[in-house]
């Protein structure tokens, strides 16, 4: 009985390890062999990373919706939302700032007048 439980949990770890290894290799080949280019490639790479994250969370960190791990799952989801706000917000704001700062003063003037017409 005890031996059976041991090997079934071990199998879970081995599955997680194998899946993570395959996903890492897939991402590596995708980037180095140039199967995809540009933004689409980055989206696929991020999807592979998120898939690997999910597999490791379940197989290695034993996250789930059962009583024992529910509060951990809840805090994790909350923190992921916070992290997404930090990352997406920073990139958005800084790119917008970069766009405004790099325009010439005449173009900037034109842009501001356009914004004024639109109203705030």
């Amino acid at each position: 009985m005890s031996n059976h439980a041991f090997s079934s949990i071990l199998l879970r770890y081995i599955f997680g390890f194998g899946a993570a290894l395959c996903l890492s290799a897939a991402g590596y080949l995708l980037a180095t062999e140039k199967w995809l280019e540009g933004k689409g490639a980055m989206a696929v790479l991020l999807a592979l990373a998120v898939l690997q994250l999910t597999i490791q969370l379940i197989c290695f960190l034993h996250l789930g919706l059962r009583d024992r791990s529910r509060s951990r799952t809840a805090t994790l989801i909350f923190v992921f939302i916070m992290a997404a706000i930090i990352v997406v917000g920073s990139i958005w704001i800084m790119n917008n700032l970069d766009y405004r700062m790099s325009t010439s003063s005449e173009a900037m003037n034109e842009y501001m007048q356009l914004q004024n017409k639109k109203g705030f």
């Binding site: 991402g27 590596y28 980037a31 180095t32 790479l45 592979l48 990373a49 490791q56």
Partner: peptide, 14 residues
């Protein structure tokens, strides 16, 4: 590290 590998190292070569 998964995300460092993906964003920093693989993202550099797209």
């Amino acid at each position: 590290w998964i995300f460092i590998f993906t964003i920093v190292y693989l993202g550099a070569h797209l």
